[in-house]
Amino acid sequence: MSFILDGKNIPFKEGDTIMDAALNADTYIPHLCHDPEFVPHGSCRVCLVSCNGRYVSACTQPAVDGSEVESNTEAVNSIRRELVAMLFAEGVHICPACEKSGSCKLQAVAYYVGLLTPRYEHFNPPGRLDASHPDMIIDFNRCILCELCVRASRDMDGKRVFSISGRGSEASLVINSESGKLGDSLFDVSDRAADICPVGALLPKHKGYEVPIGQRRYDITAIDGAAAREPVKKSGKSDD
């Protein structure tokens, strides 16, 4: 069985989602809340694709034999651009002051879809940090509610350290401990949940600048793996 993704033939097996099949075929579809190790979630919506003309989230939609899927088109990317802009407006994302910059998936997807223009009025939520744990820090205003840490802690670490509380724009990440602080929870730096966060919300301490800015993952290779970022040239006009 197979489908066509942006003109490329993608084989798949029974039970695969569009995302599973694309990842297996080394074809990039943007995603933030998806990780093949975990049950699909479907919250960020940046994996939006058009499948036979209908918009669906690739990470949750079962692949259909013979279907036509469009992903890297201006129509789809323009929606993704707004989604990413919404995440930027909702939280507090000051990349120059963020240790994750350069290895952050939110930022890298924003580069991929060409987000240049800030759009929406910032929500300016009040600051919330949890630095109680000796090895990790949480900046809640960078959390995009992807629940990867929730799933990792629950499904792999068997700890249920993280969960989401509240409704609507009040929804937020919470920690399971008497004080509500990470330091008092069962969380350990060797947990699977410790290195799953796609953004700079759940960060290791003492490691922030081990790799200098400018030499990080997405400084060197774009998130789709194909287009390498060229080192910034010192002189000469770039080609038009």
Binding site: S43, V46, M86, L87, E90, E121, L145, G168
Partner: peptide
């Protein structure tokens, strides 16, 4: 007020 807050477009979009 009634968005469940799970997905980006609705959680942020309804507020905007």
């Amino acid at each position: 007020h009634e968005s469940c807050g799970f997905c980006t477009p609705c959680r942020v979009g309804t507020s905007l």
